[in-house]
Design a protein around this nucleic acid. Sequence first.
DNA 1: GAAAAACGTTGACAAAAATCAATGCTTTTA
DNA 2: TAAAAGCATTGATTTTTGTCAACGTTTTTC
Lengths: 193, 193
Amino acid sequence: MYDLFFRKFNERVALTSEEEMLIKQLLTPKKLRKKQYLLQEGDTGKSICFVEKGALRAYVLDEKGNEYITAFAFEGYTIGDLYSFMNAAPATLNIDALEDCELVLLSKSAHEELLQKLPKYETYIRLLLTDAYIMLQRRMTNMISLPIEERYIAFSEMYPTIFQRVPQHMIASFMGLSPETLSRVRTRISNKK
Amino acid sequence: MYDLFFRKFNERVALTSEEEMLIKQLLTPKKLRKKQYLLQEGDTGKSICFVEKGALRAYVLDEKGNEYITAFAFEGYTIGDLYSFMNAAPATLNIDALEDCELVLLSKSAHEELLQKLPKYETYIRLLLTDAYIMLQRRMTNMISLPIEERYIAFSEMYPTIFQRVPQHMIASFMGLSPETLSRVRTRISNKK
DNA sequence: GAAAAACGTTGACAAAAATCAATGCTTTTA
DNA sequence: TAAAAGCATTGATTTTTGTCAACGTTTTTC
């Protein structure tokens, strides 16, 4: 049930089986069907969500109802509205399933209990945050410093398998482009080769 | 010397004076004159840098030598090439002083020693990272979802005092715009009012 | 299994932004 | 303090990107 969760955890911080037990008690499994919401704008993000299986996306809406995808999450990723989770504030993100999902949820109270009882948990969270921050910073740097074509190439090297799982117009949205522009970028690149 | 550093620390995690002593021993003060480098591309980012006084920027260069500013840091901020620091890898960022600076440096070995000896330090780092991640995510979301004018307004509400300290063309760079475009955005906005 | 919806591509056009150049002003620097 | 460098703005132009529409294909859905 929580295989991947603990595999990832142990890759970073090795746990004893007692420690695993302690954590396991505080986790909640959840299945989500494709298109179902994990979180809707205005809800309070009560959980951190780890993806055992499947794929999700996070997005915001503007006043016209246009979607802007801010994140994807696949197996082994963590997703959630961190601001909402940390501050018990209404979420600005929507998160829904792109495929049927098996998720592992960690509630706010479970999170706090683990921070109290298990220093290794805090270490793991710190490492996760560090990685997430570095990735996001790279994405931002690419956004402001690279011309679109190179940004696309960097993106496709970073997430080589994403095209099999996510429609292209969502990737465009994630990159801050219109679907037509991304399509044209792709044909331009493949013509060059 | 380390006033602001400990003030910020104690705002998040309260320290005893013994704990402050322990940390203080491991900090290194550094002064930097305007235009001096804290870090150059290719160096290994050996320190996390806390700003007691002054202002710095981080930027990357493209092959033509154009600068793209990825971050500013003022009093109370932390700056550094996190990837380089964590992985002892060559930095991709350049960091230099926009004003004369008083800095507090924390070396990699000091960082590791504190993580070992002082759980509160890890908590503080975790909280810093959480905030930094949330801010960066907001910046990214604004970048892909807001039209330029609103992005500018959001930016100027987020950092209202920045215009007194940073030339406008650097703000343009930070926002991923040409200086001319930012100038025009500003006149458009002020004409509306 | 048929109808509907979603998707990616292409073309024509409009809008936005970058680039290039010139100007006047302010700040640095020698 | 004079010269140089840095800076913000504006205009003209080019390039890039978005928008709107149409089309054929694939995937969902009932």
